[in-house]
């Protein structure tokens, strides 16, 4: 099995790592970089708990070979926090009480952030459609959708997303 020297730019910082060909991005983020925001849920791209951003686009890190992510600019849920401040989506998830057990929340924050960045004029249909790959077993989604819609307004008022 081949070993590879890779560089991931994680939350703005270049990280040099040695990975095996069959290692997964999610496990490298969690176990080697100790960024445990992204969660392991299903492992097969069906639940969204492991969502991270590649540039401004969301991907499921459970299904990305770490070696294939060499050179990627990755944002994890931790990276949405700047100088101790939550971004608009994270803050609205708190404001709208869109969190119960919290397991899906980091993934919701990531996918929600991608959604707001892509379309700050999003309406409810757009948000629900955009978020359809992120599962929540607790909240019933209503509060999550409201939080993302509120973050769209925040973004238009200049708040950081």
């Amino acid at each position: 099995m081949s070993m590879h020297e890779i560089t991931l730019i994680v939350n703005g910082k270049p990280q040099k790592l040695t990975v095996k060909s069959n290692e997964l991005l999610l496990n490298v983020l969690r176990d080697k970089l100790f960024l445990t925001g992204a969660k392991y849920g299903c492992g097969i791209a069906e639940c969204g708990a492991c969502t991270v951003l590649k540039g401004d686009r969301s991907v499921m890190s459970c299904l990305v070979p770490a070696v294939a992510a060499d050179g990627w600019e990755i944002t994890t849920p931790e990276g949405l926090v700047v100088d101790g401040e939550l971004n608009a989506v994270q803050e609205e998830l708190v404001n709208k009480a869109a969190i119960q057990c919290g397991f899906c929340t980091p993934g919701m924050a990531m996918a929600g952030t991608a959604c707001v960045r892509e379309n700050p004029d999003a309406d409810e249909d757009f948000v629900r459609d955009y978020m359809r790959g992120n599962y929540c077993r607790c909240t019933g989604y209503q509060a999550i959708v409201q939080a993302i819609l509120a973050a769209c307004e925040d973004a238009k008022n200049g708040k950081r997303v």
Partner: peptide
């Protein structure tokens, strides 16, 4: 099955 990891071993190349 454990979908956390890939158990198969293989080499990786990127032409």
């Amino acid at each position: 099955m454990n979908t956390k990891v890939i158990e198969a071993e293989y080499d990786y190349v990127k032409p």
